[in-house]
Design a protein around this nucleic acid. Structure first.
Lengths: 230, 230
DNA sequence: GTCTATAGTGCGATAGAC
DNA sequence: GTCTATCGCACTATAGAC
């Protein structure tokens, strides 16, 4: 059993947990009152919406598409969300803070910067592997956001990056890393992590597993951290 | 004057040249018969379409938006293209082969693999800097493609990547590079190059120039190519 | 070639029966 | 809660005057 399999079975959050949390947070906007019904429907609706968004984009997805994919009528859909725009907001808000929180949580017990860097890369790849359609949505459908929401989006992009930046700075202070430009290195790590879920088809074709890719990214970054000062 | 400035003034293709080539290729689908008028309008239309696509996505852009941005009526727009879908196809087809051809052309006179790698990275960044809205369109709006077109899209993505892959293999044969997995390294280079135009706002905020970024990517890759075997 | 006006289509959203 | 039926609207595309 690979590391990723273990993560998937034992540590990863489940769709049901996520939808339950999401329901409790948005009770006022969701017309369904029985929690069990709401959670069951939300799960179907959100998963279908993300799948459709991946293949044609959120804006191009119609509520008729969503109705067909979930088996619910368009009328029933509107008991899960107030408008299509509101569905976008729900998917957005829930996804946005998730990664940062999860990473922070998992890094609490790591000792050295090297170990912390490896663990952060691994966790990000595992998370994005399990929720790849959600990660793609957050990346590709950040347009259609209002001005205020766009500010949030940028702050979020930077929040993940700051986690990596902080690890790099720790490593510099302790003398383990030699880095020319921490901001560029953090940006490069982020770009490599995003490629994993945005070009999933490519890595599948190359038969690269999440663990292999995580190790590759870690080695690439570590080599540059030690090698670029020469 | 920076290297990029020189490229921009002396070597880069101009919008007018591109639109003229595009007009001659699509004469049968474009109703305007005077070449000068057609080229002038195409330039306005394509640039506006790409700008709007970047901010809200091609699908979300309406012909009313495009009409407002170009100062042409919706009726006049239809003398430049047969349908909105056709406009998408034109932008797509012209953009797709462009990068590969240009890179191949520029690499013909480079001597060593190291030099060739540096030059390929630099050229890609320069091109994407000058035509960033076009590169973003090719990346973000590859959905809404028909099945056959999607096959082309994948083949194109791989074509650019193969250029980098070939350089890496050359370097291995000549003993200059030590690489574990050429495919993964080529994919990583591509991901880093794409980040430049997809997250342009970030690098602008960090005050990173095209030349700085090109040098950073080259050094990162070269460090890993020499360092990962340890 | 470019305009204005409009036909035809498919969308998001809602009303009311069950 | 979920369904069917339908409203009003914004869109793409075209027709016909200039």
């Amino acid at each position: 059993m690979s590391e990723f399999d273990r993560f998937q079975r034992e540590q990863a959050p489940s769709w049901e947990d996520i939808c339950r949390a999401l329901y409790r947070k948005n009770r006022n906007k969701i017309r369904i009152k029985k929690e069990e019904v709401a959670v069951r429907n939300l799960q179907r609706v959100l998963q279908a919406a993300l799948t459709l968004s991946r293949s044609k984009g959120f804006h191009a997805m119609t509520l008729r598409d969503l109705s067909r994919a979930t088996g619910l009528s368009t009328g029933a859909l509107y008991s899960c969300f107030a408008s299509k725009r509101d569905l976008h907001r729900i998917l957005w808000e829930q996804g946005v803070l998730f990664t940062v929180r999860y990473l922070r949580d998992r890094l609490r017990n790591t000792a050295s910067p090297v170990e912390r860097l490896r663990e952060a890369i691994r966790c990000h790849i595992y998370l994005s592997e399990m929720f790849s359609s959600w990660f793609c949505f957050l990346y590709m459908d950040a347009r259609n956001l209002s001005r205020m929401e766009k500010g949030k989006a940028i702050r979020n992009e930077m929040a993940t990056e700051r986690i990596f930046h902080a690890i790099l700075m720790d490593g510099m202070r302790s003398g383990e890393f030699v880095i020319q430009d921490g901001c560029l290195t953090a940006a490069a790590i982020k770009a490599l992590l995003q490629d994993w879920y945005l070009k999933r088809w490519k890595y599948r074709r190359l038969k690269v597993t999440p663990d292999t890719y995580a190790e590759y990214v870690a080695q690439l970054v570590l080599a540059s951290i030690n090698g670029m000062s020469r």
